[in-house]
Design a binder for these strands. Structure first.
Length: 595
RNA sequence: GGGGGUGUAGCUCAGCAGGAUAGAGCAGCGGUCUUCUAAACCGCAGGUCGUGGGUUCGAGUCCCGCCGCCCCUGCCA
């Protein structure tokens, strides 16, 4: 005999799944439902319950049946099966044919007892994406240049998506696909040699020096044909493997990476692989050879291109994989990259966290890879371009400095910290200096990360310091404050959030139940976030949870004399803390115990 | 010209494969600190969901037309 789908002895991390399975099983025995019936179990408006099944309505429509009649037959079958006993969840037919489900307070207590820490959440969530291998391609700055605001969304979203995937059981490879083999190197190398610039003593701000040298070379290139020839010659020497130029190039990469790493450390970003375009330089020949041999690529206007005759647009718009001058471009390296990743890592999915302007490029890349891999018998992973919009200034134009240049990421993060410091000094002047500095960094940088993540990634967003660092609304400071307040409660109570709270009496008040309901919504929030890789879903959930907590905190005294009430409220606090901290960590933020 | 994105409250945004009375925050107005952090909470007010059709029991969500803004459209990435 199969164990019951739900019982207080066997608490599932995802109550929605428990309900879904029970409804499907019940439907199999009811006239009018087929195997294809999808109950469409969703989190519900609290007015109606914890979950609702909407599937009866569209099913009745297809079957030209009365939805109420179908619905009540299904509800009866559900009652008869006892897979969802009344001490676990109650349900009823409502409205035109919805089925509303309400988890019992006893079930909520049991859930809170069973799942209580980042570790237990991680274990349970591991089923969501267990066994999948995913490559996440993100950040990808160009060496010899500063990281600027243009890199922030890719970096922050990529890290958050990676963390969430890992948390849900996937085996993730984070790859920083650096732009480290471009034409800029001819200019820089030329300028470095001319200045006899010492790359081993590059000064306080090495990347700024590199940018200066690049500009010098760039100006010289335009200045005279003689310079231009010399600069091109340096690039050719590098690409042919000239030892000195390769050594300079290598040093430039090291200096750049060290600077990137400082930004990554602030943002909590790490990579498993840093394979820039240079890594693929001996792999592009094979791409050209294979695509030509398979008849996928053709010569056109001197270049090697791929057309897709079956596609309305790409039958005319070429995917250029070799320039007329014989050089590779990013299409070439992206093709080589997919082949290399498939060979080494055999991923099920590759995610490209790249801005929306490059969607044509990725569409063409996928079409090409599909044909190429099919013909050559390679395993085709799912390829997904997770596009995102532009960061705009308050004038609605892409964000720039007053001078019109691009805003450097390290300057942005520094300004965030400085601004946050001002608030900390005002709000918490009694804390020691070093702690105020730490709070300012966590809050300031977290605020910038969060502002980016809380926004639906597909739209542009307007960056405003006032809103980012606001202490109200869906912001990092608000969430971090909620976390700090909960820590404070435990300090005051002299208890440990990791405690067992065995004395806890059953949840009772409306506020308690509402908060518990929201806590149990974590799995649904993770699922929804993963469904389309949109971290703002998780942000929205955390914000609602923090709001629910604030309401609870304001209405119900936690530290009370009655030991049982105190224990159950402390347990709610501990669980809220665990979910908030888990969620914020998944987004890449660092949390605080005081602020 | 073709394609993609976007248009929801004064502002910034949510609204999950169509589902129950469209939600937040800011700004505005009014309340709440002798009690666990007031960086908080509670309340009031604010909407022809760009626009015109269509599909159906039901449309902010799907389809078609139109309008505004952003972006892409052969050798940058």
């Amino acid at each position: 005999m199969r164990p019951l789908a739900g019982s207080l002895m066997d608490i599932r991390f995802q109550p929605a799944k428990m309900i879904d399975e029970a409804v499907r099983a019940a439907a199999r025995g009811v006239e009018g439902f087929g195997e294809d019936f999808d109950p469409q179990v969703r989190p519900a408006d609290p007015r109606f319950g914890d979950f609702q099944a909407n599937g009866v309505l569209p099913h009745a429509k297809r079957a030209r049946a009365n939805p109420r009649a179908l619905g009540s037959a299904l509800v009866e079958a559900l009652e008869a099966r006892a897979a969802l006993p009344g001490d676990v969840v109650t349900f009823e037919l409502a409205g035109p044919g919805f089925i509303n489900f309400r988890l019992s307070p006893a079930y909520m207590d049991a859930w809170l007892a069973r799942f209580g820490s980042e570790t237990s959440f991680r274990e349970a969530a591991g089923a969501l994406r267990g066994g999948e291998r995913v490559v996440v391609d993100f950040s990808s700055p160009n060496t010899a240049k500063e990281m600027h605001v243009g890199h922030i969304r890719s970096t922050v979203i990529g890290e958050a998506v990676s963390r969430i995937l890992e948390f849900c059981g996937a085996e993730v490879t984070r790859d920083n696909h650096l732009g480290d083999w471009g034409t800029q190197f001819g200019m820089i190398i030329w300028a470095i040699k001319r200045e006899r610039f010492d790359l081993d003593a590059p000064g306080a701000d090495p990347v700024a020096e590199l940018e200066r040298l690049y500009k010098l070379g760039n100006a010289a290139y335009k200045e005279s044909a003689e310079n231009a020839d010399a600069i091109r010659a340096e690039l050719v020497k590098l690409q042919r493997g000239d030892e000195e130029n390769l050594r300079i190039w290598q040093r430039i990469s090291e200096v750049s990476l060290a600077a990137f790493q400082r930004v990554y450390d602030l943002l909590g970003v790490r990579f498993d692989e840093v394979l820039g375009e240079s890594y693929y330089r001996d792999k592009v020949e094979a791409v050209w050879r294979e695509l030509e041999a398979e008849g996928i690529a053709e010569a056109s206007e001197g270049a090697l291109v791929v057309f897709h005759p079956e596609h309305p647009r790409f039958k005319k718009q070429p995917f250029i994989i070799r320039k007329a001058d014989g050089a590779s471009n990013y299409a070439t390296t992206d093709l080589a990259t997919v082949a290399d990743r498939v060979k080494r890592l055999a991923p099920d999915e590759i995610l490209y966290i790249v801005d929306a302007r490059q969607s044509d490029h990725f569409e063409q890349l996928y079409l090409t890879v599909e044909k190429w891999f099919r013909k050559t018998g390679r395993k085709l992973p799912r390829l997904r371009h997770l596009s995102f919009g532009t960061v705009l200034g308050e004038d609605g134009r892409p964000i720039k400095t007053k001078e019109g240049g691009s805003v450097k990421l390290k300057d942005l993060l520094r300004e965030a910290t400085v601004r946050a410091r001002g608030v900390v000094d005002e709000k918490a002047p009694d804390l020691p200096e070093d702690e105020r500095a730490a709070i300012a960094e966590y809050v300031g940088i977290g605020a910038v990360q969060y502002a980016d993540l809380a926004q639906n990634r597909s739209s542009d967003y307007v960056f405003s310091w006032e809103r980012v660092l606001s202490l109200e609304g869906n912001t990092a400071p608000y969430l971090l404050y909620a976390v700090a307040r909960i820590h404070s409660i435990f300090r005051k109570a002299g208890e440990d959030p990791a405690g067992a709270f065995t004395d806890a009496s059953p949840l009772e008040t409306e506020r308690e139940l509402a908060l518990a309901r929201k806590l149990i919504g974590l799995p649904s929030a993770l699922e929804q976030t993963l469904a389309d890789y949109r971290p703002h879903s998780l942000c929205g959930y955390l914000y609602e949870l923090a709001g629910e907590f604030s309401g609870f905190y304001n209405a119900e005294k936690v530290i009370v004399d009655d030991a049982a009430v105190r224990a159950r409220r402390l347990r709610l606090c501990a669980r809220t803390l665990a979910v908030l901290e888990t969620g914020l960590h998944l987004l890449g933020l660092r949390t605080l115990s005081r602020m």
